[in-house]
Write a protein that binds this DNA or RNA. Sequence first.
DNA 1: TTTTAGCACTCAAAGAGCTAGAGTGCTAAC
DNA 2: GTTAGCACTCTAGCTCTTTGAGTGCTAAAA
Lengths: 347, 347
Amino acid sequence: MVEEISTRKEKVLKAIIQEHILTAEPVGSRTLARKYDFDFSPATIRNEMADLEEMGFLEQPHTSAGRIPSDLGYRFYVDRLMEGELEKPVSLKRYLKELSRQKSGVEDIMSGMARMLSRMVQYTAIVSEPGFSESKISRLELLPISSRKLLLIVITSSGLVNDKIIQLEKKLTEEELENLNRILSRRLTGRKISTITGPFLQDLEEELKRRLNYAAEIIKRLEDEITGILDKQEMKIYLDGTSYILEQPEFSDIQSLKRILKVLEREEELRKLVAGLENELEVKIGAENKIQEMQNCSLVVATYRLQGGGTGRVGVIGPTRMEYPRVISSVDLTAELISKIISSSGR
Amino acid sequence: MVEEISTRKEKVLKAIIQEHILTAEPVGSRTLARKYDFDFSPATIRNEMADLEEMGFLEQPHTSAGRIPSDLGYRFYVDRLMEGELEKPVSLKRYLKELSRQKSGVEDIMSGMARMLSRMVQYTAIVSEPGFSESKISRLELLPISSRKLLLIVITSSGLVNDKIIQLEKKLTEEELENLNRILSRRLTGRKISTITGPFLQDLEEELKRRLNYAAEIIKRLEDEITGILDKQEMKIYLDGTSYILEQPEFSDIQSLKRILKVLEREEELRKLVAGLENELEVKIGAENKIQEMQNCSLVVATYRLQGGGTGRVGVIGPTRMEYPRVISSVDLTAELISKIISSSGR
DNA sequence: TTTTAGCACTCAAAGAGCTAGAGTGCTAAC
DNA sequence: GTTAGCACTCTAGCTCTTTGAGTGCTAAAA
């Protein structure tokens, strides 16, 4: 894998990939020599190509066609050849201003960013709502709605608001509610969300029982809801620019199109896709994605972090033949933007 | 338009439409005679077809092909021929139970219903969030988040919760906030949302100024937000089953596919599409839609009404060659379900 | 008068054959 | 080690033909 590779081979590989990204066609030695003026001939290129193919970086659709990059080829490109091409597309500030003006709710920000990103790169964009496990609760409130319904409101340190309606089986008096509210507020405010787990909850339950002597059932219910609202696995996914997929020649046959559009409808799948990553910025090329139907796709995902501690993901889904440099910078930029915008609106 | 049409012609037209819906192919006299055993011959059918074509109910893609229904043909079918075919697909109760269990937020309900409907009919489903203008405010609360930020919470009589973060330019003391809260709550609780307009707002502003002597600016800001949150034109649109479009043979060429998928991404467009209807249940066939790109599509939309007074829309988007009876009953059913579920969770 | 059988005609879709052109790999010369 | 030259390969696109479902018209039958 870590074979040595001559600079000339690198040059050829890079040119092939760039050309293929541009045209979506197999590229041949002739065209390559014509477009890029190398100081060696098509014949030499052919030899290098044969080598590169043997090394696994290129593939040949059929004997008399040009070469196309393999997943491995793209991988090498992204890891080693792309460097110089990266650029910050434009200044953050311009976008920041424009976006932070009208938008305010998390939802609007998320969908706005997804839209912006997809427009920018001309591929499908995906944004996941921030998870809260690393942020703190800065405020917690229970409002009665009707005799059996409460509205639980939790504001996190990153300035995001969550609410959820809670159905109770037993009626609560005003006093009981006030008590409950006070206890929960005292115990939970300022607490890091990831620490609200088993032992702590048990302790909380004890206290509630002691101080309010409710039925354990009700308390349990409440706790479920609280933990549910907080470390919800169910972070919402925002997609935009799905139709850009149609522009890609590799998806010009309905079958493959159908396959990938179907995947984009399965939210859980996307969540897994985007969540299961370790690095700050990750590029998954072709078959590196575990999802069968996405073997022809690449995924570029970055992590954004909010001041208060929440984290989420932004990404782009496109064909393996993707303009990696441009996409990577844009995704990066967007992640940064999201942090900035939410943090500023959270002030 | 209100031409008389013989029962035999009706029979033929109905058979053609049903056959075409099934096969997506032009239908000829021969096949028709074979499949449906009429008591008249293909030749007669041909004559009737020629008549029906002249009347505008049928079209011929080219001279030597069979006939396909025109928009007018479908219209006639939906208005006059379809009757007997309508059926309630299944009992409401089963769905109701299943759905109302875990789902609780409006968002979840809406997206859940969109998903269910699209699965049921195998076309794209669209659901719009309920508008509030006809319901009342049952509770209103302002919570401080930070020195310059308030959380405005409005609960409507239909049991739906809305919240919005409000940025203030001036700091508020606790007392001022309490005052503000009390006044707003007193003046707005129980009020029908559509009546919160110009004169009433002016009056409210006067009172606020008198009682709190804030800068008019701040008050204005607050009012904007309140009215914004309430009669927001920006009702969210939930789409599901977009990929079902790909199953339709009429969209097997990428161009038309692209056109319609692009439309489905423009939320404002969809909002208009779904909102601009007068009747409780409306069927828009082909060119009856004003949207250019949807000339090959039909739209079936029903209105749902919540107990407290909100209304929204549910619909299905599919090819003109749509299984109208099944779709209409399903859309109807779904509208009913939505009312029931939200009303029951709103109790 | 209405319906039907028969027939000549039409047209798209599918298959067969052909050509052009871009590309390759190999060999031999530089 | 590099390159020019050449024979060979394979697809995409073109035309040509065939096939078959379908029509409209006419004349006979009901």
